[in-house]
Amino acid sequence: MSDAFQITVDGRPVPVTRGQTIGAALHAAGVRSWRTTRLGGRPRGLFCGIGICFDCLVSVNGRPPERACLLDARPGDEVTTS
């Protein structure tokens, strides 16, 4: 795997350095929220950064939601936000 690659967020490219999490890559690219809460529709992105808070849940390649801060980004990953 090369040290720099891309993933997409809703079709838009986001650069990644190998070993970065999806959450870190999105945050670094200025995408600070990628889902909204069930009741209040409040935006959510990274908060604890280490898998504790579950704020950062994200759907990658159509899979069920996972914690973006724990998930290594892989070349070509497609992230969809709600």
């Binding site: 970065q20 870190a24 604890c48 950064g49 280490i50 801060c69």
Partner: peptide, 28 residues
Amino acid sequence: RALPFPGWDLPGVLTAGGAQALLKGDGV
């Protein structure tokens, strides 16, 4: 350990450890 306050759930508010983890682990 987090304490609540008005607006603490806005994106851009991180835990101190979270900011440190981004820097140390992801170079962000």
